[in-house]
Design a protein around this nucleic acid. Sequence first.
DNA 1: CCATCATAGATAGTGGCGCTATCAGATAGC
DNA 2: GCTATCTGATAGCGCCACTATCTATGATGG
Lengths: 231, 231
Amino acid sequence: MMGVSVGKAVEGRKGEHAVRIGELSRRTGVSVPTIKFYVREGLLPAGELTSPNQASYGETHVQRLRLIRALLDVGGMSVAAIRDVIVAVEDPERSMHKVLGVTANRLVPRYEREPDTVIEEARKSVAELVAARGWHAYPENPAGEALAAALAALDDVGHGGFVEILDAYADAAEKVARADMDYVAHHVAREALVESAVVGTVLGDAIFAALRRLAHVDASNRVFGGPADRE
Amino acid sequence: MMGVSVGKAVEGRKGEHAVRIGELSRRTGVSVPTIKFYVREGLLPAGELTSPNQASYGETHVQRLRLIRALLDVGGMSVAAIRDVIVAVEDPERSMHKVLGVTANRLVPRYEREPDTVIEEARKSVAELVAARGWHAYPENPAGEALAAALAALDDVGHGGFVEILDAYADAAEKVARADMDYVAHHVAREALVESAVVGTVLGDAIFAALRRLAHVDASNRVFGGPADRE
DNA sequence: CCATCATAGATAGTGGCGCTATCAGATAGC
DNA sequence: GCTATCTGATAGCGCCACTATCTATGATGG
């Protein structure tokens, strides 16, 4: 028998299923070496050592691994970006908008482009849009820069006229943002707020993109009359 | 002197500024080795040979390079995905929805997840949504699968309740899709239709994501009252 | 008590991707 | 003729997300 192991004691507290790394791997579908890799990279806290070569992992590890995989696979974030965001989320000094600032900074790809008239025009469009909407946001924040870069890229490719429908996009974005706030207000506990914001920001992009594709298929069918595409 | 070179003759036709690779590089900001790399990879047609070791590049090459950079940098597509899409676009048998099918297939990351109840539930939600909206789209197309995967990921992370606001997202997506069709109808020539659809699909995602972040900053300020984040 | 298995922690290696460097031989343009 | 540039080919690089291997230790079951 050998009596109750130290691991058991750990398992006891607050109903956590404390397990060893192999079981953690089985539960999450993440390989053992990969889990160790995440620990090394600072994405996942180390297991609680119960002896020099045994550690036990709890429910928080399972959740964290799911979070990591969601941000990696669905959100398309890099390991480095996820680390930065997680560090920010865990910072006790975290304020909502500080963490979201980090998230935005790490989520938005940084495009470098030597300043030219195209990007200047795009920035102006963004500033005008933000002003017209009365958005309390500085247009020169990373999202605004990303928007300007995307508009500039569209212009480069010969679709400068796109700005004309930007308002429709902004309407939709406002609507979604309101729904997001609504969801957060009703479903999210204060402590989980920041993490939810991160998850929602990242996965929300993926969800909207997918919905937009579905709506395109429908709209395209209506306009062009072809059968929906099965592949 | 030596008279008009062959290159000049090529330059003459239809007002194209036929140039050599160095100039093409200068105009697009893409390095010469990278241009050669794109040619090797099938993203860019080779220049027109004017002698065994001289080729001239025209306006189409400039445009194509801008397209490639836009899809790569802003759209976040891989070189392989861009190649597949370009091949599809150039296929004379291209039909609108076939090319968009390829685009969707290459744009949407493929998540593998062993079938479980979570993903099954998510698929059901997607099917219900599509049905409720009367969308003429098969829910099991890649976009629908991507949506289900994202919803399942949300569920994994403890946000299964998100489905409740999915309708708001769908409303917004419909709105955007309508605006897209409108833009295409008014601004895009028939020959450019397919390429525009690709560009719009990819860059539209980036634009909407950026707008959503801006709207979040605003909504978050209104709800949480903090100052906008400057970083 | 012993055989077997799992583990921690460390270091090195792998495969894919988007380029980048280098070279030989040929041509452009003065 | 002279130098800068070009084509086409091959090899290499740097980053990234893992993955493999190893040692020393402890867990576990009979």
